[in-house]
């Protein structure tokens, strides 16, 4: 059994063993906690030359990773909170994502950027926002959103081995999970969704820890005779549109479970995909399950109301399916 953090550390170690051009860096990467265990043991295994602490300079550090990428390295830039990537957006968006195109695709930027979304425990507005939709809007930037201890190391390995710049978004709630992980880690193909639960009554498209949320909601619905299909997208860019359309063509109903905000978010994108396809008419309105469109409050009483609620989601699906 490995924890989420241990599984990520294992995948990183395997990538670094596999390819001498892989190195990891981040603010406090070699602290005793080791990014909740996800970078633990790397310095010991590969020396500080390949796993090193850095100044608090996100903008420069993102550019640093791009420069090393241009020279053939495969850097892994680890960030404790996704909000700190806002300090590096010029390098991430204007450079990492765009340089391959600006060069006429003469080179690639095989840079992987890990970032953690700190969900709950009073993390408040600046330590718990989910910014994946913002990243997924940018051409040529891969966005990976793992949902489980089993998938995360396989997707991380795939991200590091991939030639495109990748933002790898981990939600802190998953760090409490443990699971049996098959070793050595086999990379998963990016852009392939995973049917984690089969069903015929409604398609639940989900990402990150909302996959587990959707699974638990689906189990509640069994007693009502409702069989939900849960589709884990695994990555937002590339996005497995075919898997969404395939499932919807069977169920004719659709619910989208997002870790982020609704406006211009995952539900909006899934709705675009389904509604612009002439052959996939829904029998019911699309149901969107997401956090409230507000900045996360710190208070545990308010925080509970901010995030989506399983009971409420189950009731909404019941109402939708019964028409």
């Amino acid at each position: 059994m490995l924890s989420f953090g241990e599984a990520l550390a294992y995948a990183t170690k395997q990538a670094m063993e596999h390819d001498a051009r892989v190195f990891a860096y981040g603010e406090g990467i070699n602290d005793p906690g080791g990014f909740f265990g996800s970078t633990a043991g790397l310095k010991e295994a590969f020396s500080e030359a390949r796993c090193f602490d850095v100044p608090n300079s996100e903008d420069a550090l993102m550019g640093f990773g791009i420069g090393a990428s241009l020279m053939g390295y495969r850097p892994l830039f680890v960030n404790l909170r996704v909000e700190f990537l806002m300090l590096a957006m010029n390098q991430l968006v204007n450079h990492a994502a765009r340089l391959p195109a600006m060069s006429g695709y003469q080179y690639t930027i095989p840079l992987t950027v890990r970032a953690i979304v700190g969900k709950s425990w009073g993390q408040a507005a600046q330590h718990s926002s989910a910014l994946h939709s913002m990243f997924a809007n940018i051409p040529d930037l891969q966005v990976v959103v793992p949902s489980s201890v089993e998938d995360a190391p396989r997707l991380l390995l795939a991200s590091i081995l991939s030639d495109a710049p990748t933002v790898f978004i981990e939600i802190k709630s998953l760090y409490d999970c443990k699971a049996l992980v098959h070793l050595p880690i086999e990379p998963l193909p990016l852009g392939k969704a995973h049917v984690v639960r089969q069903g015929s009554d409604i398609t639940c498209v989900a990402i990150s820890d909302m996959v587990g949320f959707a699974q638990r909601v689906s189990e509640q619905l069994v007693a009502d005779g409702i069989e939900a299909e849960v589709l884990d997208l695994r990555s937002l860019a590339p996005l497995d549109s075919a898997a969404i359309l395939n499932s919807v063509s069977k169920t004719k109903r659709l619910a989208v479970f997002d870790i982020g905000w609704e406006p211009f978010g995952l539900a909006a994108e899934v709705a675009r995909i389904v509604s612009t396809s002439a052959y996939h008419r829904l029998d019911a309105p699309l149901l969107s399950i997401a956090r409230r469109h507000e900045h996360t409050p710190a208070s545990c009483f308010l925080e509970e109301q901010h995030y989506a609620n399983e009971e409420h989601a189950a009731n909404s699906i019941r109402a939708l399916v019964r028409g």
Binding site: F64, I66, L70, Q91
Partner: peptide, 23 residues
């Protein structure tokens, strides 16, 4: 290997290139 039209955009990238050259 690159020219950036964002003011100061190529500056930190140069540090990563220099790191690779030193290695």
């Amino acid at each position: 290997i690159l020219s950036s039209a964002i003011l100061a955009g190529s500056i930190p990238i140069a540090s990563g290139i220099a790191f690779a050259l030193k290695n």
